[in-house]
């Protein structure tokens, strides 16, 4: 899922400035699953802004809406109709959701309430870890299902850098060395011979480095 986390309330209040009529827009997609921007968090943020508005002496007029997915225009009409009646939209969706709402709401300010952090997975309750950088050229086949592009701090394709200690990354002892994980897993799978193959330089043109990407599926059009 796409994992996000709240911006500091002070930052959100800075964005809102003197504006009064605020539409808080949640999303039932990834940000609901990671407890950052679903219905529950919309209610929570509304209560906090309500208090902050009273404290500043000029209350906010808050409307709440949570849609199925902010990253799909199909689910936006109701949100956009409400947006037209407000000074600003405070979107609790990921960066894709915030942008799609902005694209469809010309002349209306749309602010992000959360920071979109990464594509990740649940590691423990309340803990998420990054797993994918959407590089567009999945190589999990050669690394035993563990992504070195994402999980190695240096995105090394041919083995560990030599700085890890006790299986932990030199950058932070909390980060497992991706290559330690890869080597252990290849060994467990009886595929350690895979390690001897030199991986050529990656084709980053399939990644963000090639410019903003687009996917077209003719079969769905």
């Amino acid at each position: 899922m796409i994992v996000g986390d709240w911006k500091p309330i002070e930052t959100i209040l800075d964005y809102l400035g003197e504006r009064e009529r605020i539409l808080i827009a949640g999303c039932n997609g990834c940000v609901t699953v990671c407890n950052a921007g679903g219905q529950k968090e919309v209610d929570m943020l509304a209560r906090i802004l309500d208090l902050a508005g009273k404290k500043r002496g000029r209350p906010f007029h808050i409307t709440k809406i949570t849609v199925e997915r902010q990253c799909d225009p199909e689910f936006l009409p109701e949100l956009l109709a409400l947006a037209a009646e407000h000074d600003a939209v405070l979107s609790m969706a990921c960066g894709a959701g915030v942008q799609l709402v902005a694209e469809h709401a010309p002349g209306r300010e749309v602010f992000p309430a959360i920071d979109t952090n990464f594509i990740g997975a649940v590691e423990r309750k309340g803990e998420w870890g990054e797993r994918c950088q959407a590089c567009g050229d999945c190589k999990l086949f050669v690394t035993g299902g563990i992504c070195p592009v994402t999980r190695c701090s240096k995105s090394l394709m041919n083995g560990p850098c030599g700085g890890s200690r006790d299986g932990k990354c030199e950058v932070d002892p909390e980060i497992p060395c991706a290559w330690n994980l890869i080597v252990d897993r290849l060994e467990a799978l009886g595929r350690l011979d895979q390690y001897d193959i030199i991986q050529p330089p990656a084709d980053w043109s399939k990644s963000r480095d090639g410019g903003p990407r687009k996917l077209i599926r003719k079969d769905l059009q």
Binding site: G159, P160, C161, D166, G167, W179, N180, V183, E187, D196
Partner: peptide, 10 residues
């Protein structure tokens, strides 16, 4: 370096 078993192959 860690992991030791990979240092010769590396």
């Amino acid at each position: 370096a860690d992991p030791a078993k990979i240092q010769v192959p590396r």
